[in-house]
Design a protein around this nucleic acid. Structure first.
Lengths: 203, 203
DNA sequence: GCCGCGTAGTGACAGATGTCATGGGTCGGC
DNA sequence: GCCGACCCATGACATCTGTCACTACGCGGC
């Protein structure tokens, strides 16, 4: 029986090393590569053609979700398992549409990790039912591209005028987009709107 | 030579398990306890009197910094090592004043972890020079308690009126506090003020 | 061809926010 | 006892935001 070959992508070196140590305890799993960002991981998967890519979402450069999207085209033989801190419905939705078959929170019990890897390596899916249910409950991203753009900048504390300059729009248009976004999200102002959008993984 | 006895506190089960696996590889270290939140960790240190407590900062209930503060009084024999995602100057400052002798980012190379544990167990300090320098550069928290309170609620998207109701103040007073806070932080508005305060570990 | 949607803009208005000056009160340090 | 902090408040003012109505263009679907 040949072991499952794994590449791990995780920007926090300590966590990367720790997860590697954890998986090394499993006799049927071998770690063939470690990457500290999405771009390095992409190259590594191309070179090593592992059975499974274990990846974080929030990383410098290419995010774990972008990475999964690229791999679906370039290297569909490598199964992707996302491991993330955040239970954001939008993240799960984007992961699913990128063809990801494994999704795991860092909150999950340790045994779940190896189990998920084995499941996806065997062609199955490992997505917790409660997360999937929450994602359905919340629904999909109601924002348009421009609403997201303006909201992102507004969340950094920029004024309507400053946002308008950055995006090449008129301040009035920015006001309208932000007002629309707040309305769609049921928020009373741009701050609340930014928070719920971020919480849901839409920003 | 007796091994160094360690308790780990970390709310993300996967990371907790992974770090435990990593440290188990070191023959001179033994993990005697694992806690998923600050309160459990406090009880565990009282019961087990370990040489070292390895703890995250952001946890449900008692934070790692609160925990360190309590232990300085209750159990000064146990050395504390903070392991955190965030390089926030205010966190390091609070850690130092709580008597913490080890501070490590999750970004750090894996070898640094065991090294830091051995250093503090031997009575030494393990605080990266660059973090300490950054903390001095930024200086200490310029905000008063009330400015922090109002800023925290403002960052959640509450209006002046809503903040005033929560804190039992007049809306005008809230405006003044937020204006003061923004001035001290060099911010143009409450959003930017909240961001820089959070970034520096002051919120 | 028309409709819906996203994009982009304007004008008007109310209300929220930011700034400043000014006035209290308490409390601790010198 | 005075001074400096932090606390709390008010009033006045300018500016920023949020909301609404209404217009216009391009694009894709039916």
């Amino acid at each position: 029986m040949t072991p499952i070959r794994i590449v791990i992508a995780e920007d926090q070196a300590l966590v990367l090393g720790a997860i590697a140590a954890l998986l090394s305890l499993e006799p049927d799993l071998t770690i063939v590569g470690r990457a500290a960002d999405g771009d390095a991981a992409l190259a590594m998967v191309r070179d090593l053609a592992p059975d499974v890519l274990l990846t974080d979402i929030e990383m410098p450069g290419l995010s774990g979700l972008d990475l999964a999207g690229r791999l679906a085209d370039v290297h569909p033989r490598t199964a992707v398992v996302i491991v993330t801190t955040f239970a954001r419905p939008g993240y799960l939705a984007r992961a699913k549409s990128a063809g990801v078959r494994g999704y795991l929170l860092k909150d999950a019990p340790v045994d779940d990790l190896a189990a998920a890897i084995r499941t996806v390596a065997g062609g199955g899916r490992a997505i917790p039912a409660d997360l999937a249910a929450a994602a359905i409950e919340i629904g999909c991203d109601p924002l348009t591209d421009r609403e997201r753009d303006t909201l992102r900048l507004a969340a950094e504390g920029l004024s309507n005028k400053a946002i308008a300059d950055r995006l090449g729009l008129s301040p009035g248009t920015v006001r309208n987009y932000l007002s629309d976004a707040a309305g769609k999200l049921g928020a009373a102002n741009r701050i609340e709107a930014g928070r719920t959008a971020r919480q849901n993984g839409w920003l």
